[in-house]
Design a protein around this nucleic acid. Structure first.
Lengths: 231, 231
DNA sequence: CTCCTGACCTGATATATATCAACTCAACCA
DNA sequence: TGGTTGAGTTGATATATATCAGGTCAGGAG
């Protein structure tokens, strides 16, 4: 199960985020006093859609998926989080509800900050508030990309987008070993699992990628970009 | 073409927004000195995707559509704006670019505020900054709804969603006369225009709605909600 | 008036995609 | 050892949806 530790000197602390760089010493100290660290095993949920939004989390180790749950159908994965990213939720200052779920894709660690504390610092430090607005807007921009990809591209384009996203944004390498299942990858592309697998094979046959289990190699990113755009 | 007037006493002013209710008198005055009003004819563009983001707009009269442009395909309409709503853009504090386009659906009026001025007030007044964050989060929540509707529902569900959205959110009546074209409605549902028309007819034949040209009546919202959920 | 254009509508067709069913294989367990 | 489970995979099939082609109709321009 989940192990909780209170460690004021954890090596990977939220202050690496550019968001926090404008905080004063006393504000950092205040944050430090009011945060706690939690370790997660693969598959464990850190935020659950529909539950109360009480904390903001800063990911310090591992990998997480952010996804929308649909009553009947598959999930829709919005994005993947890696250290050191902040994750709150749009219910903040609205209705204090979680609008998505977040789960660990591998053994991971997150730092939790109470929203009351977070709000207090936002109120005190206007530079921090503006940085936070910039952070929200960045997420928003990425969401538009996602929206266009999912609604206006065919499956091949969406699979290409997913592969490019993993390579460029998450693993930052043309070769990567992922902890995401085929279902996860399909959820990320908003495609049925079977269809995703089929297209993966097509890409392999076309020589654009190579893979063996969960280990992928992008051979021809040029082609992947072309597929992403043309569709 | 577009007629520009500088009118400090325009009847419909941005201060009706709850967002502005926490501003001090001097801040309101400062905003007033630095805003200007513009009148738009049907079809005219007030923000253009890809151009520079320099102002935030407050809609004081008429109706606008917010949409993402795709190089080749149709547009994707995100939402419709009505008085008195604020519209900025996620490029604010990020890269000062417009990530969507906004166009007038009928004769309309908008009030423009320079982003430098807006930013200055955000910096001065932390309560205002928090209200603005809440406003951004609300938009974000609606975007998640949209995302799920467009990716996980079939056409019938999406058409039902569009009709419910117009009735409940925009026109606030079961009967409404819209200035949106069939193409606009299709863009709002992320459907081909022909398919949209077909489903509209099915709904009419099923007795769920009635329409004549651009004049719509929702006869059985119960059924529409059922269609929206089941699909 | 007549032509032209663009929005709306309809039917036929093609195609993209999901679904269903079945099989393999590794991991785990009794 | 054999059984069970779940993820991955593949092929066949059904279906949702876009596309294409054609048609009507109202409004504007000459």
């Amino acid at each position: 199960m989940v192990e909780i530790t209170k460690d004021l000197n954890c090596e990977e602390c939220p202050f690496k985020l550019s968001l926090f760089k404008h905080l004063k010493q006393e504000e950092l100290a205040y944050l430090n006093e009011n945060r706690y660290e939690v370790h997660f095993n693969t598959g464990e949920t850190i935020f659950k859609q529909g539950s109360a939004l009480t904390h903001v989390a800063c990911l310090t180790r591992g990998l997480f998926k952010v996804y929308l749950e649909d009553r009947s159908k598959n999930n829709l994965m919005l994005r993947i989080l890696k250290p050191t990213e902040l994750i709150g939720g749009p219910g903040f200052l609205v209705d204090s509800k979680q609008y998505f779920s977040v789960a660990a894709l591998e053994r991971s660690t997150a730092c939790f900050i109470d929203l009351k504390v977070f709000e207090k610092i936002l109120r005190q430090n206007s530079e921090f508030a503006l940085q936070f607005i910039a952070y929200l807007n960045t997420i928003h921009i990425n969401l538009y990309d996602k929206l266009l990809s999912l609604t206006h591209k065919n499956m091949h384009g969406r699979v290409a987008d997913t592969l490019i996203y993993l390579s460029k944004q998450i693993y930052k390498s043309l070769n990567f070993e992922t902890t995401l299942s085929r279902q996860d990858l399909a959820d990320l592309s908003s495609i049925a699992k079977e269809s995703f697998i089929r297209i993966l094979k097509e890409f392999k046959d076309g020589g654009f990628i190579q893979f063996e289990g969960n280990s992928f190699q992008l051979k021809d990113t040029e082609a992947l970009h072309r597929i992403s755009k043309s569709s």
